[in-house]
Nucleic acid binder design. Structure first.
Lengths: 340, 340
DNA sequence: TTTGGCACTCGACCCTGGCAAGTGCCAATT
DNA sequence: AATTGGCACTTGCCAGGGTCGAGTGCCAAA
């Protein structure tokens, strides 16, 4: 076994022990708990090298070593083997999610499940409207100058909003508008709808254009952009279990979990469902959360990810277990959405 | 000034100082900070009496006194004067809430406003459906055996749900059903609707009854009962600011804030909007939160409260300020709902 | 390259004594 | 009868000092 290989083994052992015990780990403890086949002195040399390279650090002289963010990064990228879920956990995922009746239910069950499996805080973004297809648009007149706009997507998501019109409209006009919108929108994705709906106004007489614009404007702006950002959060209480060091970060993190803008930045852009992504400590420093790591996965019925889900916790977290849980849940939810 | 009056003054001073400093307060500190006009020795006698009666307690011998739950209760009921909000605060309430565009927006702004004003965690229950009136019910066919049910209330709340029918239905049937439901439901409250809608099935032919029952069943069960419980939460991060003693309660409290069932029990039944209610520490022990106090108020457009809003924090909180804030926000939101 | 030995550093822990806050009681005063 | 000053007593908090042990880095030997 070459030197470099052993150094990596040492790093792996340090990460595992530190995550398990929450205490700096020394050379002797390492050889005791892992069968590395060499003496503490050798380990010390390796540790000195690892520290030199920036993978581990000493809180103070005469204390053990602690992984740095860079160390966690290497661990996650190259050292951790995927820890398969236990079969009770797999069963829990199935029984928990199979009972879901609609999209909202899927999301709320998913977020609670993730929090429970990982014992950390979980975040699930609602499937992004912009990548799903329109199934139906419904307009309902509530009053002469007030219309309810309802949008239904192929993922089962339903968004609604009330529009106040600039002037009174009659059933005929609304009916025609409903028919035209559906004719050009059903089965399309949002980018397409957006491009076509804006032209729709021209086909009506000038006296109705303000009314049409109010409805289509609402459809585009409010329904799509506003609800793009919906997220569900659970398991914040789990974060309170971590002591001292993470305490300082607790308050800003709880605030961030309430701020959807920050939260979405934390989740990041979902691209494809497959790989679980990990952002460690300072890597998401833009949010001011330097002691927090985020494990996310895209999910969605097809090849493209519709949205992200993930778990938030201290950098000192069980990455293999968390990655496995997030990945498994994301895959299962994707399957459910595809079957729907 | 009689003895009893001064004893109450002493209790008031103890509560105020303890809330401000977070430290047990002794006799000397009291006479220094408040002009009580008597010597520390006299205060000591009064304190001994207050302790005897259970209003204050000593963490340990030779420490100052701390209010008990019973002491806080007396303080809230008889000793605290309503602290009027500062005019910047009043302005903040107006500017913050006047920008709201719909009911969801009102609720989400309200909860954030409350959290910010009180620097604690805020909870706002969505206006209860069961006390509002039906404005419109819409049925939309999505597929031969699939119908979207939309319910709109006079508070502007919109609820929707997709129903899978036991057998295919045609537009005519759905249209007739829509007309009949609206005929008997519009303008009614939910208790009335519930009673009448169940009879509706009888007016259709036996072959359609299963379909009708599916729709009406959804309308009643899911829309009403399920969404009765919606709540919004904000400001959980503020709770992390409290140290030591409250730390133990932090995790169960954060969990409770995610559990809508517990949360609604904490908010309690809203009866009438006017009085702000305070539940102190052990008074809501059923939830297992013995160091937590809750300040709530009902709100709603009329005489009856549609729902509750409130603030959750440690027993050692600024009751006059919190009560004033909750009361003012509840009144302002009620006004907005009435104007709508 | 590995290893055992060794000196060194430094935080954690414990004990101690002094300090200060706070109390309760009592006798004196009004 | 209420209030007050005085005083002895309790007790947590804190600083100082000593010990302990974990852990390191270095070096010479295998």
């Amino acid at each position: 076994m070459s030197v470099d290989d052993r150094k990596l083994d040492v790093l792996r052992a340090i990460v595992e022990d530190y995550v398990a015990t929450q205490e700096p780990v020394g050379s002797k403890a390492l050889v005791d708990r892992h069968h590395l086949g060499v003496s503490p002195a050798t380990i010390r040399n390796d540790m000195a090298a690892l520290e030199e390279e920036g993978y581990i650090a000493q809180p103070h002289t005469s204390a053990g070593r602690v992984p740095t963010d860079k160390g966690y990064r290497l661990f996650v990228d190259r050292l951790s083997t995927v820890k398969p879920l236990s079969s009770p956990e797999k069963r829990a995922i199935q029984t928990f999610l199979d009972g879901a009746v609609d999209l909202d239910d899927v999301v709320s069950r998913t977020v609670r499940l993730l929090a429970q499996l990982t014992r950390q805080a979980a975040v699930v973004q609602y499937p992004s409207l912009s990548r799903s297809l329109v199934r139906h648009v419904e307009l309902v007149m509530l009053a002469p100058a007030r219309v309810l706009v309802v949008l239904i997507t192929d993922t089962g998501r339903v968004e609604q909003r009330i529009v106040d019109l600039p002037s009174d409209a009659d059933d005929a006009l609304v009916g025609e508008l409903r028919a035209r919108i559906n004719a050009l929108a059903v089965g399309q994705d949002f980018a397409t709808v957006e491009a076509q709906v804006t032209e729709l106004t021209d086909r009506f007489g000038p006296e109705d254009r303000a009314t049409i614009a109010a409805v289509t404007g609402t459809l585009l702006t409010t329904l799509i952009e506003r609800h793009e950002e919906r997220v569900a959060v659970a398991g914040t209480g789990n974060l309170a279990r971590y002591g001292q060091e993470f305490d300082r970060e607790l308050e800003p993190l709880l605030s961030a979990l309430e701020e959807h803008v920050v939260l979405l930045r934390l989740l990041g852009e979902a691209t494809s469902p497959t790989p679980v992504r990990v952002r460690i400590g300072s890597e998401n420093a833009q949010t001011g959360l330097s002691a927090t790591s985020v494990v996310t996965s895209g999910y969605g019925p097809g090849e493209l990810a519709l949205a992200s889900m993930g778990v938030v916790g201290p950098t000192r977290m069980d990455y293999p277990g968390t990655i496995a849980a997030v990945g498994a849940v994301a895959r299962y939810v994707s399957k459910i959405l595809a079957a729907h």
